[in-house]
Amino acid sequence: MINSVLCAVDISNGELDAPVLKIAAKLADLDGAQLDVVTVLPDFGESWVSGFFESDFHNKALEEAHEKLTALCTANLDADRNEKIRHVVATGTAYQEILKTAESAGSDLIVIGAHKPDLKDYLLGPNAARVVRHSSVSVYVVR
């Protein structure tokens, strides 16, 4: 039985991750599981990089990402369903943050997209492949 599902989306993909989100919601609903949705922002914290940004850039980026993540969930699920979702915005390396979030949330299943559709091969994208390879829980890959 699944108690918690973590869905990883890239908000920079716009609506391209909508099918991933919808499948994650269906899988969570099968067992009445908690649905968590995570997106990961790159880390600009290194001193030589962060010097190019305003001091409050990171906080603004987190707020904007949270708004976009919530809007993606509301647009593809309904507002009532969205109220029950835990929206997580992490900062760092995508696959590492997805795995950390899954562990801290107690997720039993991770749902992730295979890659951006403009790739012409049938291989997993690098983040999905790393999540599959390093995860201690089941991973459902949406193509």
Rank of each mutant, 00 (worst) to 15 (best):
A129P: 05
E103F: 05
S107M: 04
A25Y: 03
I112L: 08
N59K: 13
Y95G: 00
I112E: 02
R81P: 00
E103T: 11
D17N: 09
A71T: 10
V89M: 04
R130E: 13
R143L: 08
L27C: 13
A33P: 05
V137T: 08
I2W: 06
R86G: 11
V40H: 02
V5A: 09
F57R: 10
K84Q: 15
W48F: 15
L21H: 04
E97Q: 15
L6V: 07
L123P: 05
Y140R: 15
V137I: 11
Q96P: 05
L109W: 01
G113K: 02
S135F: 12
A94Y: 01
A79W: 03
C7M: 08
L123F: 12
I85G: 00
V9D: 04
D78P: 07
Y140V: 11
D10Q: 07
R133Q: 13
A114M: 07
A18W: 10
P117Y: 03
N59A: 15
S55Y: 04
A33H: 06
A71C: 06
S138P: 10
V40T: 02
I110M: 03
V132W: 06
K100Y: 03
Y95T: 00
T93P: 06
D43S: 15
V141N: 15
L77V: 01
G14D: 03
V40I: 06
K116V: 08
K68C: 00
L35V: 02
A8M: 06
A8D: 01
M1F: 05
I2T: 13
E46P: 10
